[in-house]
Amino acid sequence: MMGASVQWLTGMGFALIAVPALVLVLGPTEGVVLANCGAGAISVVGLAGGWRRVRPRAMVPLVLASACTVPAGTWVATRLPEPVLLAGMGALVTAAVLLVMRGAQVPALRGAKGALTAGAVGGFMNSSAGVGGPPVSLYAVNAGWTVREFVPNAQFYGVMVNAFSVATHGVPRLGGSVWAPAVAGMAVGAAMGKALAERIPEKTARLLLLSLALAGGLTTMAKGLWSL
Rank of each mutant, 00 (worst) to 15 (best):
M1L: 12
M2G: 00
M2K: 00
Q7W: 03
W8I: 11
W8G: 01
L9Q: 15
G11A: 06
M12D: 01
A18Q: 06
V19Q: 09
P20F: 05
A21M: 09
V23L: 02
G27Y: 01
T29Q: 13
E30K: 13
V32W: 05
A35M: 03
N36Q: 11
A41E: 00
L47N: 06
G50T: 08
R53S: 14
V54Q: 01
V54P: 00
R57Y: 00
M59A: 12
L64V: 15
L64P: 05
S66Q: 02
S66H: 06
C68Y: 00
C68N: 00
C68P: 00
C68M: 14
P71V: 10
T74S: 07
A77I: 02
A77D: 01
R79W: 11
P81Q: 11
E82C: 01
E82S: 14
P83G: 13
L85D: 01
A87C: 09
A87S: 13
M89T: 15
M89Y: 10
G90W: 04
A95Y: 08
V97K: 12
L99V: 11
V100K: 10
M101H: 04
R102E: 08
Q105E: 15
Q105D: 14
P107E: 11
P107W: 05
L109S: 10
G114A: 02
L116T: 05
L116D: 05
A118P: 06
V121K: 12
G123N: 11
S127K: 11
S127L: 10
A129W: 05
V131K: 03
G132C: 12
G132S: 08
V136D: 02
S137P: 02
Y139S: 04
V141M: 01
N142F: 07
G144L: 06
T146R: 12
F150L: 09
N153M: 08
Q155G: 00
Q155T: 06
Q155D: 08
Q155R: 14
Y157N: 03
M160W: 13
M160I: 06
N162M: 09
F164T: 02
A167K: 08
A167H: 07
V171W: 14
R173S: 08
S177P: 00
V178L: 12
A180L: 14
P181Y: 04
P181A: 05
A182H: 11
A184P: 07
M186C: 12
A187T: 14
G189P: 13
M192S: 09
G193S: 07
L196E: 04
A197D: 10
A197M: 08
E198R: 10
P201V: 02
K203D: 13
K203E: 15
T204E: 04
R206E: 13
L207P: 00
A213K: 04
A213Q: 07
L214W: 01
L218T: 07
A222T: 07
L228M: 14
